[in-house]
Amino acid sequence: MTAPNPGPAIAVRNLHVRRGERQVLHDISLTVPRGSITGLLGPSGCGKTTLMRSIVGTQLIEKGEVLVLDEPAGSAGLRHRLGYVTQAPSIYDDLTVADNVAYFGALYGSSAADVHGAIDAVGLGGHTGNRGNQLSGGQRTRVSLACALVANPEVLVLDEPTVGLDPVLRADLWEQFHALAAQGRTLLVSSHVMDEAEHCDNLLLMREGKLLGQLSPDELRSRTGESSLENAFLALIRMGEKL
């Protein structure tokens, strides 16, 4: 008997989030396919972080449904299967790279080999003895990524991981993201820089708490007739305003 095909890695249906009197997310529905890189793009303040927090289960929602690997977001069963990297690096300045990753690994019951593997995966094998306060901004971001990878998660949610990095470091990180996707992991990566859309298999485009579109970079170009993804995004906004 053939096993049923698994559903999407992430499924969001009719999600509404309110903070006080302000509606932050307006009836968001989307899917993220497994084993892919999906870019969540839109200007700062459009609701990307709130959506990601809803997916990892740390955001109170007004109504709607969020499933990750077919389980409700925030379920105990997802703790080892879902990794989350916040905008600000989540590491301890007084601990070394190895100790930071080992600390998070202990929370997941990871082995010493898992710790070394996570550090090597982000290209910091030569910096294991450096303390957090001795690292550059890009290296701190990589340590945060290693802390998420040490649990060997199936899904990685990365909130603007390349913000503030120089072009070379950004390119290096995207190479690592593609290597992780090639291993079968699912990545949801947010950014407010439209040229990063080129690195993604699929795009989720947001503005003012609403989802404008879910499509591939080539589909975005085809729909708008624009070759530049930044111009295509702006064209999509104008098309929505006319509806």
Rank of each mutant, 00 (worst) to 15 (best):
A9P: 08
A11V: 11
R13L: 14
N14K: 15
R19W: 13
L25M: 12
L25Y: 04
H26S: 13
I28P: 05
V32Y: 02
V32Q: 04
P33C: 10
R34W: 06
T38M: 11
T38P: 01
G39W: 03
G39P: 03
L41R: 03
G42K: 03
G45C: 11
G47L: 05
K48I: 03
T50E: 11
M52N: 10
I55L: 15
I55D: 06
V56Q: 06
V56H: 06
G57H: 08
T58I: 14
L60I: 13
E62T: 15
V66K: 09
L67V: 14
L69I: 13
L69G: 08
D70L: 13
E71G: 12
G77N: 14
G77D: 13
L78D: 14
R79Y: 14
H80G: 15
R81T: 10
L82P: 03
G83Y: 08
Y84T: 10
Y84V: 14
V85W: 01
T86V: 14
P89I: 05
S90G: 13
S90Q: 12
I91G: 04
I91P: 03
Y92M: 11
L95F: 11
T96E: 09
T96R: 10
A98I: 09
A98M: 11
D99W: 08
A102E: 04
G105N: 03
G105M: 00
L107F: 04
L107C: 08
Y108T: 06
S111A: 06
D114L: 00
D114M: 01
H116D: 14
G117L: 05
A118I: 00
I119C: 01
V122A: 01
L124R: 00
G125W: 03
G126L: 06
H127D: 12
G129Q: 14
G129A: 15
G132V: 00
N133I: 06
L135A: 10
L135P: 01
L135D: 02
L135M: 10
S136C: 05
G137R: 02
G138N: 01
G138I: 06
R140Y: 07
V143H: 07
S144Y: 04
S144I: 09
A146L: 07
A148S: 09
A148G: 05
L149W: 05
A151Y: 02
A151M: 10
P153G: 04
E154P: 06
D159P: 07
P161C: 06
T162A: 13
G164I: 12
V168L: 14
L169N: 09
A171M: 11
A171K: 09
W174T: 01
W174S: 03
Q176H: 07
H178F: 02
A181E: 03
Q183Y: 02
Q183V: 02
R185T: 00
R185N: 01
L187A: 01
L187V: 07
V189K: 00
V189P: 00
V193H: 11
M194W: 00
D195K: 08
D195G: 03
E198L: 11
E198V: 12
H199F: 10
H199P: 01
C200L: 02
N202K: 08
L204W: 02
L205Y: 05
K210M: 15
L215D: 08
P217R: 06
D218M: 10
R221E: 12
R223G: 05
R223L: 11
T224I: 07
T224W: 04
E226L: 10
E226R: 10
S227A: 15
E230Y: 09
A235H: 04
L236G: 00
I237C: 08
M239Y: 04
M239D: 08
K242V: 01
K242P: 00
L243S: 03
